[in-house]
Design a protein around this nucleic acid. Structure first.
Lengths: 204, 204
DNA sequence: TATAAAACTCGACGTCGTGTAGACTTTTTT
DNA sequence: AAAAAAGTCTACACGACGTCGAGTTTTATA
């Protein structure tokens, strides 16, 4: 995988390969939408940037590596966005804000997120990436629950495990809804938000 | 797929093929545990009953058909078990009973259920099977919620959508926990039960 | 019980997708 | 200007899938 650090300190002109690599990833994303992971062939991926299979193997060692890089690229974006989110003190508002952000994320990157989830089992690298992402969400939810008065701890009715379950609920609900329509995603979001609030004891 | 109706009315002695077919499915299940779906080859599956690949194709048209049949066999078992469950009137007890039953199901058939979920996207037949199963669970949860006083309806904070979200929460929590250990499955169950109760307004 | 039909099995074949090898061309560095 | 690195290609070998047609065994039937 060449180009590990694309532009460390605005160094050196952009290699031809850098733009190719990006083009490969873009094509991969497009194909994922059209044909799905297993139907899609590395020949297809190579056709995007207009190179041959052989040339593609210069950039990535395998089909799995290509999609792993794509997931990594997307997930990095998610993390960045998570860090850049302002923290609010009012739990009710924090929940609403988190759900808004999550809807945006799924609207933008639903496809890649779904394939990440699908391949988590078979491609360990992707599993690791996604598991880390889920942990991020879970700790965020935990924090909100605790600030809302839920007992901290690891017993089944305390914050950590509840947050984990809520995280899975959101993941799965959004996974399905984002396959259908933006409206359904919005509805699923409202439902999840409601359950989250109730679980936090924030029902009025 | 021969043997559509294994023994309609206790008719005719058992064909040699019937036992083979079962042996194939059993082998498939075992291999699924050892190597996983995509690593496993149809040659491997054929080795179980001690036949060749060619012979296997007499029974099933493809690798996908084999695993689809396996999922069908398992899912049928689930449905049967669901029908045979006594209905209780007390919501709190109904929830507890449902969770107990679900834990048993996942302890017994976790492997096949997980692969069913994994292949839902790529194998439409399996997707259909699992979607029907999820619907069964969802309507059951809906019924309990309504009996507990949750507003019936399809608005985000009413019974149907909430049940769907809870169903996904349970599916995903159990999917992960059943990969780890029986203890974790039990813990996940307790957490899900708690959230379900709170969502139903059954917190004391 | 003889024989026709069906159920079942096999090995060989064609196809497709993957990943590798080595020679060749272009770009960058010195 | 020449060496080194970066990028590209065609051809090949391998493995897995699914098909075919010819055989063998089992079951039904007369």
């Amino acid at each position: 995988m060449p180009g590990e650090h694309p532009a460390r300190g605005r160094r050196s002109t952009e290699r031809k390969g850098d733009v190719r690599e990006r083009a490969i990833l873009d094509t991969c994303e497009a194909l994922l939408a059209q044909k799905g992971y297993d139907t899609m062939t590395v020949g297809d991926i190579a056709q995007g940037p207009g190179i041959t299979r052989g040339a593609l193997y210069f950039y990535f060692g395998s089909k799995q590596e290509v999609v792993t890089a794509l997931v990594a690229r997307t997930v990095e974006h998610l993390w960045e966005r998570s860090r850049a989110t302002a923290q609010t003190d009012e739990p009710r508002e924090a929940v609403a804000a988190a759900m808004r952000r999550t809807v945006e994320l799924w609207n933008e990157h639903g496809l890649v997120m779904r394939t990440a989830i699908d391949l988590s089992l078979t491609v360990p690298e992707i599993g690791e990436l996604w598991s880390r992402t889920a942990d991020l969400f879970t700790t965020a939810i935990t924090a909100v629950l605790e600030r809302a008065g839920v007992q901290p701890g690891t017993e089944p009715d305390q914050a950590s495990p509840m947050a984990r379950a809520l995280c899975w609920m959101i993941e799965r609900s959004f996974y399905h809804a984002s396959q259908e329509s933006r409206e359904n995603l919005q509805k699923a979001s409202s439902t999840c938000e409601h359950i989250w609030l109730v679980s936090a004891g924030l029902t009025d």
